[in-house]
Structure formats: structure tokens, C-alpha cells
């Protein structure tokens, strides 16, 4: 099939979103199905067919989502109803919308990469319990309670931590 000339193609818009909590492994296909499910549940199949959403790329914590121009608002609302990916709790934060992927890439390039400092990250004390830090960005610190089988993440800031 030959490619349509630009004037006959659908106009598209791209959204860049951040998947929280940071460090969550994002499988594009799983996220696509989560978004499709959210749109269908909220607006129905007819609106979903109009939106023709697609997950274009996932780069670190950022994901690029495509939709038909004029449906960004509905897509953004549907994205805010996504609360989990498989069994992992997530939140999808919309960063920006644009007509080209390149401008969105420029936008996320300007955001500094957060991470814990290199080397050993010592355990921290909060509410008289010992936690292991898993993520840090400025004041923010995400921790997991130390112990067998503990995977629940707690969201704190450095001021919450008790001195050992």
C-alpha cells in the first residue's frame, strides 16, 4: 500500500508522560493495554476508535503516547484513571503534549536525571523501623522496609528520617 500524501494523513498529537514511582519497569505492550482499557472503560469503543492511541516509545521513566489531534484532553483524562500496570501500582503524570516527538524529547532532556548517590546507600530509620532507600531526588526519598519479603514502597522526604 502506498503512503498517503501528508495532506491526506490524520493529524496526530504526542503526549509525554512520566510513570511513577520512578524505576518502575514499563513494558510498552502492557502499558498500551492499560491505556486502551482505561479509554474503553471511560469513553467506550467508539471514542477509543476515534482516538487511535498508541504507545510510541518508552525511554526510562518517560513514555510517548500518540493520539489523533483533538482527542488529547480525553486521552489525558483516561490516563489519570490508570492506577496499576499488571500488579504494580503506578501513576501516569502528564508532562507535555506536542505535535512532534522531537520537541517532547527536547523537553524531557531538560529535566535532570534523579537518582540515589553512587555507592553504598545506608539504611534509614523512620517510625522506629529500618528501611532501605530505593530512590532519591532532592528531598524526596522512597524506601522499602527492611525484612524478608517486604516490597511495599513508602514515600518520604529526608526530613522525615530519624537520626540513627
Amino acid at each position: 500500500m502506498t503512503v498517503r500524501p501528508p495532506t491526506l494523513r490524520d493529524k496526530r498529537r504526542y503526549l509525554v508522560v512520566r510513570v511513577d514511582p520512578p524505576g518502575t519497569p514499563v513494558d510498552q505492550k502492557e502499558l498500551y493495554y492499560a491505556i486502551a482499557d482505561a479509554i474503553t472503560a471511560l469513553y467506550g469503543d467508539v471514542a477509543a476508535a476515534v482516538m487511535i492511541q498508541a504507545v510510541v516509545a518508552a525511554e526510562g521513566d518517560y513514555v510517548f503516547i500518540r493520539c489523533r489531534r483533538g482527542t488529547e484532553r480525553e486521552l489525558a483524562t483516561a490516563l489519570s484513571t490508570i492506577t496499576s500496570l499488571r500488579d504494580t501500582r503506578i501513576a501516569v503524570r502528564i508532562i507535555a503534549a506536542s505535535g512532534t516527538l522531537e520537541s517532547l524529547r527536547e523537553r524531557i532532556r531538560a529535566i535532570p536525571l534523579p537518582s540515589l548517590p553512587e555507592g553504598e546507600n545506608p539504611d534509614v530509620l523512620f517510625d522506629k523501623k529500618v528501611f532501605t532507600p530505593v530512590y532519591g531526588n532532592g528531598q524526596k526519598i522512597d524506601v522499602i522496609e527492611k525484612g524478608f519479603k517486604n516490597t511495599h514502597r513508602y514515600f518520604l522526604i529526608s526530613e522525615d528520617l530519624e537520626s540513627t
Binding site: P21, A76, T77, R89, A91, R93, I94, F155
Partner: peptide, 16 residues
């Protein structure tokens, strides 16, 4: 959880 928080713009989208 912070994951349950929504932005002001998302509030207006959900209220729409």
C-alpha cells in the same frame, strides 16, 4: 499514597 494524587488539570478533566 502519592500515586493516588492527581494534578489540578487532571481534576478538571475528571470533573468534565
Amino acid at each position: 499514597s502519592v500515586l493516588d494524587l492527581r494534578a489540578v488539570r487532571e481534576f478538571s478533566g475528571l470533573c468534565s
